[in-house]
């Protein structure tokens, strides 16, 4: 799955560069995130700016990652569009992940 990764102020930013996170690529997405956690990244921002669609399988991948992270660190979701924001709220993911309007806001929150 296409991602773009940068480290900003010690925070790993994983930019998702596919328009859809769904059952066909959710296992790979989950694996990517867990590999980064196991590599020692404890502050991770997932940049969703280019994602137009998320289904329940992709939510499951995010939950798998946050469970793997546990108390070690934080995973934040940044820049979801309106449809994604509604879904994240409906499924209570806003109670599990910090969600910010921009990547910069998420990095600032996790770096502080």
């Amino acid at each position: 799955m296409q991602t773009e990764e940068t480290v900003q102020d010690g925070v790993l930013v994983v930019g998702v560069r596919v328009p859809r996170l769904e059952a066909s690529n959710a296992p790979e997405f989950r694996r990517t995130l867990i590999e980064r956690i196991e590599a020692g990244h404890q502050q991770i921002v997932i940049d969703l700016a280019q994602v137009q669609f998320i289904d329940s399988s992709a939510l499951g991948a995010l939950i798998g990652a946050v469970k793997r992270m546990g108390a070690l660190g934080t995973i934040a979701l940044a820049a979801p569009n309106g449809t994604l924001s509604r879904l994240l709220t409906l499924t209570r993911m806003d109670k599990v992940f910090p969600i910010t309007e921009t990547v910069e806001d998420a990095v600032a929150k996790l770096a502080s």
């Binding site: 329940s56 991948a61 946050v66 409906l90 499924t91 209570r92 109670k95 599990v96």
Partner: peptide, 21 residues
């Protein structure tokens, strides 16, 4: 079916939301 306990990550299910959605 979408209610969760954010304090209880260990028992947060990765699946089972599709039908509710």
């Amino acid at each position: 079916a979408l209610e969760i306990d954010p304090e209880d990550l260990v028992n947060l299910s990765e699946s089972g939301r599709g039908l509710a959605l």
